[in-house]
Design a protein around this nucleic acid. Structure first.
Lengths: 194, 194
DNA sequence: CGGTAGGGATAGGGTTCT
DNA sequence: TAGAACCCTATCCCTACC
């Protein structure tokens, strides 16, 4: 499947760092809602931000065997006004070096430059789109709803094989499918999902 | 001096396969905790299981995702359930019970519920059509191909949740979906390639 | 109920050994 | 050169706790 594991781009990381500088650590939802970062971080959740920050902090404190546990606690609670300099001592704003972080020079704006990650839409993707469509929620559906829908409607039962056979026979009988020499094809005029 | 590379025994490998069959891939810790396998696999970690499974899959690769489509067009070996060949069908096809979909979702979600009164069958038809469409075989696809396609794309329930999450993020990242406050909606003009 | 901190599991790239 | 076993850690998930 496409991309299990959404690797953080340099741009997203920069946005996160800027967000922490502006709002402080632990204000993940706030950062996410800030229009200054929301577009770049639109595919990330508040928890993602927290996790990424933890990870950044760990690698930033490289040299001492401190662990992630300290990293988060070390950071500033929520700078109301003070410490712009304080932040520096703790926040991994420090620029990376010796890291394989090569931001494409041609991009400085925030245009969706999703490299070759496009690919064709997988089957599961279509199901997802169908789920969202079927749920018909005006503001869209959340992950739980989508999952529940799929779980209830598309879950593969243990004896799926048998059921597939039964359904194939049925679909053939009602003319949706045409069977020829053990091969099934969709009768013209039939509609698939989506 | 360390561990001289502990080679996997046939027994361990069998236990791993059985474990995957029972719990699905990606449930390494669960497999390890299962008393049915814990004794045999007692010297292995969850990461070991994952690594071993990867190694197995790499060479066995007949029922695996990536190549599924290619493989399918090449007359696939009717999935036999021996246990001697190298991990092919990962899907819990094993049991034959006359029951369908007794899913005990670990959720009692909230969020605008849709009416979950129509159970699988109707939706299974959609999947079937989906499979046939996706397989794009000029003369149609046979039952085995269809079934394997479905298995391959919707594998085991335990992983479904994760897969959905991953795909949601991906779809969001490429602009097909738009995420707002944990809600996903379809961007106008989304594609639906086959 | 929504958000955060933390613990811990998984995925995938790398490395070492054979 | 390849494959198997193992290591590293970014990312993701679950749960307790406000």
């Amino acid at each position: 499947m496409g991309a299990p594991k959404q690797k953080w781009t340099a741009e997203e990381e920069a946005a996160l760092k800027a967000g922490v500088l502006k709002h402080g650590t632990g204000k993940w939802r706030t950062i996410l809602s800030d229009s200054e970062f929301s577009s770049v971080l639109r595919s990330r959740s508040n928890v993602d931000l927290k996790d990424k920050w933890r990870n950044i902090s760990v690698t930033a404190l490289w040299g001492s065997r401190k662990k992630a546990k300290l990293a988060l606690k070390r950071t500033l609670p929520t700078p109301k006004q003070d410490g712009n300099s304080t932040a520096l001592s703790i926040v991994p704003v420090g620029n990376d070096e010796g890291k394989i972080n090569s931001s494409p020079p041609e991009n400085s704006g925030e245009s969706p430059r999703y490299d070759a990650s496009k690919r064709s839409i997988t089957s599961l993707d279509k199901i997802i789109l169908e789920a969202i469509t079927s749920l018909k929620e005006p503001r869209g559906s959340d992950r739980t709803s989508i999952f529940l829908y799929i779980e209830d409607n598309f879950r593969t039962p243990p004896n799926m094989k048998r059921h597939v056979a039964v359904r194939l026979k049925h679909l053939t009988s009602i003319g949706t499918l045409i069977k020829t020499k053990h091969k099934y094809r969709i009768a013209s005029g039939s509609v698939t999902t989506g």
